[in-house]
């Protein structure tokens, strides 16, 4: 690409609680910077069109398709990839319930479910469906994924003092559950 140097910038991103730098183009996608500059290959390139969810990461705690975001847009925000989750309840339930086969969609699903469990621990079936329809799985019949999600949400609902949940909080990257968005940019916004 002619004249690329002139467009190179130094990005500074908070990824999994670490400040990391990369030389990138403003036109570079968050997905590509995570994978190619930081070696974080957990977020998967799928459709690259915002349709499949395989590249889902958390941005300030919210599930986002990293193929629909420029890396520069993530500056000043906390990005969490699946590498930032260590033996969380979501991951354990996915293993326990056989909620994956080939695994390609799994990091995206795990991040979405992790975001859901933290932002909407009391999510009803409609909300779970609404959120999880953002991701495509080609191998399973989705029932195993549903079993994993139900189990994660039940754990969160049943006991805030659950050791597993507390452990999640320590294991997740800093800032994963705090969101300026959630604090309500909308006036009178009750966060339901």
């Amino acid at each position: 690409m002619a004249g690329t140097d002139r467009y190179t910038i130094v990005l500074e991103l908070n990824v999994n609680g670490e400040m990391r730098r990369a030389a990138a183009r403003p036109a570079d996608l968050l997905l590509d910077v995570l994978r190619d500059s930081f070696g974080l290959t957990g977020a998967k390139p799928g459709c690259l069109n915002g349709d499949c969810g395989a590249c889902t990461v958390l941005v300030d705690g919210w599930p986002m398709k990293s193929c629909l975001m420029l890396a520069v847009e993530a500056e000043g925000k906390a990005v969490t990839t699946v590498e930032g989750l260590k033996n969380t309840a979501v991951q354990r339930e996915f293993v326990d319930k056989f909620a994956f086969q080939c695994g390609y969609c799994t990091p995206g699903f795990v991040m979405n479910v992790y975001g859901l469990a933290h932002l909407r621990p009391d999510a009803d079936e409609h909300t779970v469906k609404d959120w999880l329809q953002s991701n495509i799985c080609r191998c399973t019949g989705y029932e195993e994924i549903r079993d994993a999600v139900v189990s994660v949400l039940q754990r969160r609902a049943s006991s805030a003092a659950d050791a597993a949940v507390a452990e999640d909080a320590t294991n997740a990257a800093d800032g994963a559950v705090d969101s300026p968005m959630r604090k309500g940019s909308a006036a009178n916004g009750s966060d339901t």
Partner: peptide
């Protein structure tokens, strides 16, 4: 999520998928 204008919120919620 904010419910400030439910007609707008719900009509917008038909677009694409939640993460998008």
């Amino acid at each position: 999520d904010s419910r400030v204008f439910p007609l707008l919120g719900e009509t917008g919620a038909g677009v694409a998928d939640r993460t998008s």
